[in-house]
Design a binder for these strands. Structure first.
Length: 284
DNA sequence: AAACAGGCCTAAA
DNA sequence: TTTAGGCCTGTT
């Protein structure tokens, strides 16, 4: 994808935005609202603001382009990887069209991309996600960031970064009481300590395979098959991960009553899952 | 008011 | 290996 920089002045201050030529395989609403992330929020103008990888940003569509606050260097260092800009989603979509249903689902989900998110943030967020709905997940994550993250400014507004594992590792579960996250608090602290101590090396796991990563993750308390698959897919860049939640169970029951093996999608199983999930949520 | 949420854990077949 | 019930909390 081509990237060029343009400067735009707003509210009297020089606010730099960088333009990314994305074509149609980049739909902000689908990317941010297909359940893979919890910290981006749409404004009245359709722009999304949020914090990721320690940076606050606003991102909006402009014709065939995306404009994101920050410099070209930010795009190269952070957003290029985060938005998975190297992969051609049009051909990826083709590769998961194994039947009529998958064709419908992937057409419907055109524009979804699998984000490459911060590993610890993803682990922690999906621990919180268990048995919760999205609004509550977002609320708990936001409270966590406000309480323990660092403030970052964007256009005069204060946002908070996701606290790093070391910060949470030093706490006791009771310290997370303000989050109102209930029985998940000890899971969060245990995961933070595992990451902080190096007992769980997420970066190293990202260079292994699905089975290895899953085994290491599910060894932690409060992390089962589903959460592990989400962490692996959304932050370890292992595309064969295939999270199955209640929506996916419905989708599979409806469309593959005879049984179903995600391995048919190979390294693109996770993307196939995203299309099935999004399709099921919107139409199921 | 009781049941249920985008799971996980444990106990029991 | 599969299944039921409980778990914090918030919403319906």
């Amino acid at each position: 994808m081509t990237i060029c920089v343009e400067n735009i002045r707003k509210r009297g201050a020089a606010v730099e935005e960088t333009r990314i030529q994305t074509g149609d395989d980049f739909d902000l609403k689908k990317i941010f609202e297909c359940g893979q992330c919890f910290r981006w929020n749409a404004g009245p103008d359709g722009a999304y603001t949020g914090v990721a990888m320690g940076k606050a940003a606003r991102i909006r569509r402009d014709g065939d382009n995306i404009l994101i606050t920050g410099t070209q260097r930010d795009v190269e260092r952070i957003w290029h990887g985060y938005f998975d800009l190297d992969r051609d989603y049009r051909s990826l979509r083709q590769s998961v069209c194994l039947d009529e249903y998958m064709k419908s689902a992937s057409d419907y989900g055109a524009g979804i991309r699998i984000l490459n998110q911060d590993r610890w943030e993803t682990l922690c967020s999906f621990i919180i996600s268990q048995c919760n709905n999205i609004p509550r997940i977002k609320k708990i994550v936001e409270t966590l960031c406000r309480g323990f993250g660092d403030p970052v400014e964007l256009e005069g507004e204060t946002f908070y970064t996701f606290p790093d594992a070391g910060k949470i590792a030093a706490l006791e579960p009771e310290d997370l009481a303000p989050l109102r996250c209930g029985y998940r608090a000890p899971y969060i602290v245990a995961a933070a300590r595992a990451v902080d101590s190096g007992a769980l090396d997420l970066e190293a796991l990202s260079k292994t395979d699905l089975a290895t990563a899953k085994k290491a993750l599910t060894a932690l308390p409060g992390i089962g098959e589903k959460v592990a698959n989400c962490v692996i897919l959304f932050s370890l860049r292992i595309g064969s991960a295939f999270p199955i939640d209640v929506w996916m169970k419905k989708a599979i029951a409806q469309h593959y009553p005879e049984g179903f093996d995600p391995a048919v999608f190979g390294e693109n199983a996770g993307l196939a899952q995203q299309y099935m999930f999004y399709f099921q949520r919107e139409n199921g």
